[in-house]
Design a protein around this nucleic acid. Structure first.
Lengths: 238, 238
DNA sequence: CTCTGGCTGTGATGGCGGTCACGCTGCCTT
DNA sequence: AAGGCAGCGTGACCGCCATCACAGCCAGAG
């Protein structure tokens, strides 16, 4: 079976590569079965929105592959990107458990397959399977943690150069190959990066130029190569 | 019994005015009993710290009265206040459930009494009483929500005037008497307000002067009176 | 192929607000 | 009372960066 948008559909959660490390690992067999019964998979093209800020929560989405942009927009049209969600993450959890409107908008930026669980079914499942509550709480804790991290880069770094450097370093954390160079694929536009760090598009462009000139990094297509990590880090303490 | 710091100690959680509306309401009697067994109450003077950013989590604190400042500080000494916690709130929950270091520092700014539950006991309690998991998740959802709200004021409003206006309006939300005037007690210094909205102390002082001159608000001791709410709101769309 | 629209690069300009510097008040300590 | 200290008020300066404006560039659509 061919999936639309040129991606292979993951047929079952049992074969999902993220099954192990995420929300619903190590459940009892009956729980898994119940979960499967209330879960439905769908594919979304680039540009699709899973949910919109202010909507009454319909349920949670579990990302199987692809990437999703989570943002909030002010009355006058300015947008702040809170984070980019990677495969394995659960979206819409805070709104669903509190039964208050989504506080972010989720837009697909890379073709995505996601499992959806409707709100009421999800909450019932939680009530019936107390063991899962703690896992959900942990997931929420992680999400909160990343929100705080984002606040730090936006609120504490004063120069935009600092924010950008911090953003790039955060991005590369984990992908660290150990050697001097770090390679990351960066599918965001300058505009989107600007919206993540609270700056203007032009300033981001200029700073990229500056960093390239200083031999701190290099860009090849959608691949970002950090050539001098220490140098980037020194931008933080200016 | 007289409490230190001139406050009456609340003797039991059963008589706590926040018992109804918070984390552990409507538990089964045995659960309440178990909970009481692992909870210990203490009093803290102004300036005390409940926990510090980066520490291994010791457990959760449930605020009975008083107020606590939650902040994060960067390497170069800049401080960002994430929020001020009011009575009834639970502190240290994200760190405790994820078993990762506290990502904020909690400092008492008004003499406080709080109940403490050690991490391991708390987690065991959660495992034994599945019903509570959902409540914890909801609490975390709320906390996340307020973090997002804070990010909005810091990241989306461009002028500092806008941020301050938004901060004051958020502060007064709920305390709205319905009539033209809104009264709030504001125990924060200009410095602290600056740290909440990501601005400098001097700018906050100047803006307060400006707002007073425009008859938008008035300050009497630690009481803030918003005289023209609509006027303040119009600052948001400049 | 051409055209359109999104993305990137770059210059010029101007203002917001951070920083430094200092004086003032009121409160707590000695 | 005298001193010290934390918080507030205010002036001067000037650098960063948002904004506007426009010019190449590339990809995808027709």
């Amino acid at each position: 079976m061919r999936a639309p948008y040129g991606l292979e559909i993951i047929e079952s959660c049992l074969s999902c590569p993220h099954r192990e490390d995420r929300l619903f690992c190590n459940l009892s067999p009956p729980a898994v079965q119940k979960l499967a019964a209330i879960t439905s998979a769908s594919s979304y093209p680039k540009g699709a929105t899973l949910f919109v800020e202010g909507q009454v929560p319909r349920g949670v989405f579990i990302l199987c592959n692809g990437r999703v942009k989570l943002s909030t927009t002010s009355a006058d049209g300015k947008t702040l990107i809170v984070r980019i969600a990677d495969p394995g993450e659960v979206l819409g959890l805070p709104a669903t458990v509190t039964e208050k409107p989504y506080d972010l908008t989720a837009e697909v930026i890379e073709p995505t397959q996601a499992n959806f669980i409707p709100r009421q079914e999800f909450l019932n499942f939680l009530r019936e399977h107390g063991e899962v509550g703690l896992r959900v709480a942990q997931q929420l804790g992680e999400t909160y943690h990343s929100a705080i991290a984002e606040m730090r880069t936006i609120g504490l770094s004063h120069s935009v150069g600092e924010k950008l450097a911090r953003f790039l370093l955060d991005l590369s954390a984990g992908h660290d190959s150990g050697k001097g160079e770090v390679r990351v694929t960066l599918t965001l536009t300058h505009e989107e990066i600007a919206q993540m760090i609270g700056a203007s598009r032009e300033t981001v462009t200029r700073l990229f130029g500056e960093f390239k000139k200083k031999q701190l990094l290099q860009v090849k297509g959608s691949t970002l190569i950090i050539k001098n990590k220490a140098g980037l880090e020194s931008v933080l303490n200016s």
